[in-house]
């Protein structure tokens, strides 16, 4: 633990907003708001999971055949990258809690690098799929499939991973924002709600991938 800074210098710009009585009430409200937001995220992705389960049950052979065209290794690498970035994000929150500005900034930078790494791997995966014509709906042009609806699998695959990728990109922007604020010295044990909030969002992005990886890459 490295609680080094003096109490007077912690988060000098922070003050409790006028409509809250205490910092604690403000922090709790922010966190509850984030959790409710995460509920909407889960149900948003839920629609795609629903489509996945239905079409998998209808077109089981197509899904099994199509999922062999996904790159298990790249998927597994991305899983590890995201889990590691979740760890560094959690550690960044912890560092903010103990007033360690340098470590907060450091862990956030690692998190952003992981996010970029994830996107690079995703880029190569997409490039490969597009090259092979493994695309949704009318754009599906790959030859040699023995089952009738591989295009549906790739529709689900691209919608799920695409929207997840969009969340990764938004996450990069959010982490960059708190990175700059952390650099400025905004956060401390007194006030770190934005770090915590972005952290919760980032963990949810990880959570969604934890389901996407086995469903799409492993069991088809």
């Amino acid at each position: 633990m490295s609680a080094s800074a003096n109490d007077e210098k912690l988060s000098p710009d922070f003050h409790v907003a006028h409509h809250f009585d205490t910092a604690d009430q403000q922090f709790d409200s922010a966190r509850m708001g984030i959790w409710l937001f995460l509920v909407t995220e889960i149900l948003f992705f839920g629609g795609l999971f629903c489509a996945f389960f239905i079409y998998r049950s209808w077109y089981f052979s197509s899904f099994v055949e199509a999922h062999h065209h996904l790159d298990k290794v790249m998927g597994a690498v991305n899983t590890c990258v995201l889990i590691f970035s979740s760890l560094t994000m959690a550690l960044a929150v912890r560092s903010a809690q103990v007033n360690d500005k340098a470590k907060t900034v450091g862990f956030l930078i690692v998190t952003i690098l992981c996010a970029f790494g994830f996107l690079v791997v995703k880029y190569f995966e997409y490039q490969h799929k597009i090259h092979d014509g493994l695309l949704p709906g009318v754009h599906f042009t790959a030859q040699g499939f023995s089952s009738p609806h591989p295009g549906t699998f790739f529709a689900v695959y691209f919608m799920m991973t695409g929207i997840h990728g969009l969340h990764v990109i938004i996450g990069i922007g959010l982490i960059l924002w708190i990175l700059l604020r952390a650099q400025r010295g905004d956060f401390s044990a007194r006030y770190y709600a934005p770090v915590e909030g972005v952290g919760l969002y980032w963990h949810l992005v990880d959570l969604v991938w934890i389901y996407l990886f086995p469903l799409l890459y492993l069991v088809g």
Partner: peptide
């Protein structure tokens, strides 16, 4: 007093989770 006091977990908890 109303100031938020964070609940800090040890490093070991994070690495064990990972």
């Amino acid at each position: 007093g109303g100031d938020h006091v964070p609940h800090v977990l040890p490093y070991a908890a994070y690495f064990a989770t990972w």
